[in-house]
Design a protein around this nucleic acid. Structure first.
Lengths: 200, 200, 200, 200
DNA sequence: GATGAATGAGGGTTCATTCAT
DNA sequence: GATGAATGAACCCTCATTCAT
């Protein structure tokens, strides 16, 4: 996972990798502030590289968009492991769901691009699912095992539910989405108790 | 409502009105297929008018977007009356909710524009609500009166719920949204029966 | 002279003439404030007529420019007669030269157009000269006859001199041009006295 | 002075400088033939570059106009030195004044632009004066020192006088202006002789 | 490899001019 | 005749993309 791009890992990794990181970081920021249609120059400038460099690594804009998306998915999924290691299961689940909500919110602008029909995006939904579903499954299972949440929730349904709840988050500066997600999490816990009772 | 634009009804309406209709119809189509940022020329060409004509009536793109939106709201709201006249209350409600779902689905592209902060869009949410809320309220009341659906549903909540359900509809070519909405309608009917039992 | 345009003087003179006057007046103003390349619509709007009306009378922009120019020449030349009738010769001359200076100043924008090579402008210099030269000749002769100014000045030279002096008048908000013209007039008077002495 | 643009002299100057030169040369020509409002494309085409190149270097039209103006001022002022080196003082003065007259004549179209109030032009008058005044002062002093012209002429007055004389030069295809300037130069020489006599 | 200058298609907008009403 | 709606050519300007350095 740490070597996702540039698998063959040739020479000059220091320079090249630094640039690629800078570009992806800049693109993430610019996509968020100016949308995915922001001028290439804006991204190159913020990354401190020439446009030629950017084009060398990401010949099509969709390549860049996809790379940013994957990178963000990686980061968010990785955090599931970190949170699970550092917190009790219920707390880890809760923190990660909030983290995932943020991911969805900042990716709002990408949605339109993702559905543009560009083949470069074809694999992204699967990438999304294959990273997030196991991550959430693990967190859910751990929290269910300690009785902190109910155990009959499908990870995919939860991912999708939050995705939908977060949909209008651009409109909602008042944290409506986070409140709804919190409600949902409460629902998970509440269900756990009842399940426990039933089990007994 | 039938004379919303050009109220004073001046001279040469035939020509002008025909063009305006053509432009709005073309814009609706193009906005749907190519997004709200589609080239002005594309819309003008499809409407069979020169770009100048389009600019005369809609100096800013936002003016055109807003006009298309209002026109669609009008059409959808008007259909509530038609359906109510031609169908039994429960059926009318059901048909209109599907119609409204389609409205939301095709307006997906507008969402981003609407939240762009352009003052030309400031009045649209109110326009949306002031047309749809009464329309749905009437349908709901009629269907509740015949016992076909439960009577404790707020029109606004239902509008918003469907809006959220339909959110990812671009992603969903398999009619997922329509199935969810159907489920919701079933819930309305189901609630009606239970309410009836309670009442007894 | 009072029927310069529309010589045949047909019916409907009231309406038509009123419009033509309004157009010329508006054009004069707009040419001064926005330049001779100002949008036709601006002129039509200020005149309170449709663009079609303007085009009917002045098919080419140059026609309008020429008509405005002639009208202003007429007005300025006519004033020579009025001033001569109402003032002593020296005073009349002085007042008219100031009037002529204003004419030149406000026509600054036209200069470029006049030299554009458009055939519609070919007759304007002659029109200018054939109106202004006699007008000034008369004033000069009268003032010379009373000994108020020297008698050896060619009207054309004076017209041209003032024209040149007024050349930078756009740059000169401080009345530089008017001061120079005043100086020139003083020169005329001063010469007169010396001539008188010589004559004795 | 020889390195006015691109002082720091970065890399790739060959290409860029060549283009800039071509653009300025083309702009000078086009401004003269078609006026300062000529289409950008016309200039780009004549310079053999894309419009983008032109916009890169001169984002606003006023930038291009100002650059052309400065370049012409530079060229004309530089010629004062050349002429002084290659001719006797009186002849050098005479030749340069004719050269300056040409400069004024071809810049006629710029006058309106210069007084448009655009801040990009604010520094041009000072640039004009700070280049031409010393250049002419040197020529005048040298010619006065050899007794070829009178010594009581202010360079600025002479520059301005020729500027005014050349004002109608568009109208004057018959060399009227050059004749007037020649007359003026004669006056300078004539004054010199009389001054000499007075001195004796 | 990195850079950024150059290119030019593409899209917005204006306005002279025509012509149906 | 007067009107002003419609037209579309012509401009401006912005970037995506290429390519010489």
């Amino acid at each position: 996972m740490k070597d996702d791009e540039e698998q063959a890992g040739g020479r000059m990794r220091a320079d090249a990798r630094r640039n690629e990181d800078a570009v992806l970081e800049a693109a993430k920021t610019v996509f968020f502030t100016s949308g995915v249609d922001a001028p290439v120059r804006e991204i190159a400038a913020m990354a401190g590289v020439g446009v030629g460099t950017l084009y060398r690594r990401f010949p099509k804009r969709a390549d860049l968009v996809a790379a940013v998306f994957r990178r963000e998915v990686d980061a968010c999924a990785a955090e599931a492991r970190t949170l699970a290691a550092d917190n009790p299961p219920g707390r880890a689940l809760e923190l990660w769901l909030k983290r995932y909500t943020d991911f969805i919110a900042t990716k709002r602008g990408l949605a339109a691009a993702l559905h543009s029909g560009d083949p470069a995006f074809d694999t992204l939904p699967a990438y999304f699912q294959s990273n997030f579903e196991p991550a959430l499954a693990t967190l859910l299972a751990a929290a269910a095992a300690t009785g902190e949440v109910r155990g009959d929730i499908e990870p995919y349904d939860l991912l999708r539910a939050i995705g939908n709840l977060a949909v209008g988050s651009g409109v909602d500066p008042a944290g409506h989405t986070q409140r709804m997600v919190a409600l949902l999490i409460d629902g998970l816990k509440c269900g756990a108790r009842r399940q426990g009772e039933d089990a007994v």
